[in-house]
Computed example of a mutant assay.
Amino acid sequence: MLGLRPTVAEQVGRVDGPLTARDAARAVEAELGRLLDEALGRARDTDPVFARDVAGRVASLVLRGGKRLRTAFAWCGWRAAGGSGDATAVLRTGAALELVQACALIHDDVMDGSPLRRGGPAVHVDLARMHEDARMAGPPEAFATSAAVLAGDLALAWADDLMTETALGSPHGPRLHREWQAMRTEMVAGQYRDIHAQATGASGVDEAVTIATLKSALYTVERPLALGASLAGAETAALDALRSAGRCAGLAFQLRDDLLGAFGDPAETGKPADDDLRTRKLTCLLAVGSRLAGDSGDREAADALAPGARAASDDTVRRMRAALERTGARSAVEARITELAAASLRHFDRSGAAPSVRREFAALVERAAGTAPRRAGEAA
């Protein structure tokens, strides 16, 4: 067992005054610990080898870190729609979002061949090492890929179990479940469009935005906001405003992730800094760079950033970074992030949320998008 964990009610009870989004993110850590204790116990009852090798690795990844942004956005959606009182349902929704995020990360790392996640080895890499250390039969990569797919499936099953229990206990359960259903389908569609773009050599900006929206923006911000608001019985107008705010903030978050994937410091991000460039993944950053290179007649940059080429060497990655700087793609994406973040705040203000909740949301958008906070008195 991971050890005794306080319940959500006990954790919330330690917070003086109304909970903030940051408090909610901390409280969900306790709920995740308790839920994973129970899940690991059930896994051991089912099979101890499975529990040790698969369930234990899922729990470890979930508890290893992450910004808990999805929990915080669900909290903001709940508060924006007038949520108050018992916070258990929204925090359990946050925990379910963290579990579905673990599923996405595990599967994404397998598909992309990424070696690092949250400052440690990706699950498939850890499983390959286990295979080698135990001198098991067969190629470690095949075993690790198969086992990691199962680990991601388990994280999704745990998330679905938790969300089903939460929806059944809520007077707004049907709305909550519809949001959850849509989110899961969008995630799978986005992941497929990602690998489809790789296979077809797609390079268009519109294609890249579609992938970014489906694969990341919706389930990072828009759906968490809507899930939280649904728990509070949000009116249609407020829910529409929150959806618009979430889509803008979510896309800003993904564009920031694109920049970190090309220029970030692995010591700070917990993942490699050049995977997207090395595999020539169709990100918005790469698509904008390719377009700007073509528009300006910069043949060297166009060749460096061309989609569908073979895996890039260290030297090519350096040339790609230089091309993204020289064409102005990096600056253009930075500017778009700022625009999207500002638009998100304007939409959120239309939700009718209290000023304190609007301030919390603005701080969250700043964290997600890496933008400067809005100055006091500045138009939203």
Rank of each mutant, 00 (worst) to 15 (best):
A354F: 07
M187T: 00
L154W: 09
A362D: 15
A249C: 11
K67L: 11
P266G: 14
G204Y: 01
F263A: 09
R374D: 15
V333G: 03
A128R: 10
T200P: 13
L69V: 08
L35Q: 12
G352R: 15
L292A: 06
R117H: 09
Y192M: 11
A51G: 10
A147M: 13
A182C: 10
A96E: 02
L242S: 07
S296D: 14
R256W: 06
G246C: 08
A226D: 00
T20R: 15
C284N: 01
A95M: 05
G264Y: 10
V333P: 00
G169K: 10
D349S: 14
G82Y: 13
V317R: 02
G370T: 08
L305D: 03
T46W: 04
R135G: 07
G169T: 08
E334T: 11
W158D: 05
T316D: 14
D37Y: 02
A335G: 10
A128D: 03
G352S: 05
A238G: 10
T371P: 00
A309D: 12
L176R: 02
T269E: 05
P174Q: 11
A309K: 06
L4F: 00
V149E: 13
A335I: 11
A353H: 12
G228M: 02
A353D: 11
S203G: 15
L162I: 07
D86H: 04
L97P: 12
T371V: 15
E325V: 11
E334K: 09
D37I: 05
A311W: 05
A25M: 12
G77C: 09
E360M: 02
T93M: 03
G173F: 01
R184D: 00
W180N: 06
W180F: 14
D257A: 10
L36T: 04
R184W: 03
A30G: 13
G83L: 01
L305G: 03
R358M: 07
A199E: 04
L214N: 06
A312L: 00
L340V: 03
E360S: 03
A362P: 00
L218N: 06
V54M: 08
G377P: 08
V28E: 06
